[in-house]
Design a protein around this nucleic acid. Sequence first.
DNA 1: CCCGCTTATGGGTTTACCTCA
DNA 2: GATGAGGTAAACCCATAAGCG
Length: 308
Amino acid sequence: MMVEKEDLGLSLSLNFPEKKTSTSTSLQLNLMPPSSISSPFSHPRQQKNSRTDSFPSSDRSLDACRVETRTFLKGIDVNRLPAAATADADAEEEAGVSSPNSTLSSISGKRSEREANVEDHDLERASSRGISDEEDGDNSRKKLRLAKDQSAVLEESFKEHNTLNPKQKLALAKRLGLKPRQVEVWFQNRRARTKLKQTEVDCDYLKRCCEGLTEENRRLQKEVQELRALKLSPQFYMQMTPPTTLTMCPSCERVGAPPSSSSTNPITTSVDARPFAMVQAHPRPIPFNPWAATPIPHRPFDALHTRL
DNA sequence: CCCGCTTATGGGTTTACCTCA
DNA sequence: GATGAGGTAAACCCATAAGCG
């Protein structure tokens, strides 16, 4: 299964996240590869004010991280880990910007940065809300197609950081001859596209999970049926070697003793032990596991994880 | 004409900061 | 001076409109 995951381009960890995120405890899967847990990307909003912050643990960062960890979409490495290069780039770009840490106090630092940005923002808003030089009051929404090289540059920039601070935005806009607002919009749409594609991939993967689990469930139910039938003929049962697939209980994760041992029958580790009156003399009783009796596996993803 | 992709817009939400009681 | 409430601005996401090939 791990191979398939790799093929999918997902290194999905199906462990239940230990983070306190309320949403992650329900159906939420931890679809992030281990490497992305320490993704240098922080949530955009947090980047806004402190791009050099250590990684936030906010719930919302999950989305961002998920989006950012996808390096396989359409062969576009949109989320290449910026690593040192990006950090350097950031540092370089931030050098000229008032940094929260470089000013007298954190408050004044943020404020000064913000005020500096306000000018940019006013400028960009004024210049990008349809009041372009070319349009001259014409309210018609001109749709322009970005040139290939423009798209390429934006794409490159997106690889490094999928959000832009105002300085970066301005610089990029200047470099490409676009309005800052256009750059901003492009990044927004780009993030949306990435997210959409990721959703599709996630969906595909979950579908496969579901199919696998359905199959697994069917197989196990069949086994249970067979075992229950065997229960009715004990003498028959005594001569039989236990099914190898039932040597481990996915719930308690105990592995049964090897089949050679006559006193410890692994069947009881995963199948409802109640029907097996004859094995009640088990030297080490194993807790009753309701999992096997339910149509839906108790820990589907763990089971899948160990199996596939 | 329809379709899919891209660009653009507007509304809602979140966050940080400011002012004031 | 500290604190909480309310206001504001900025950035984001999302849904959707519209242009274009």
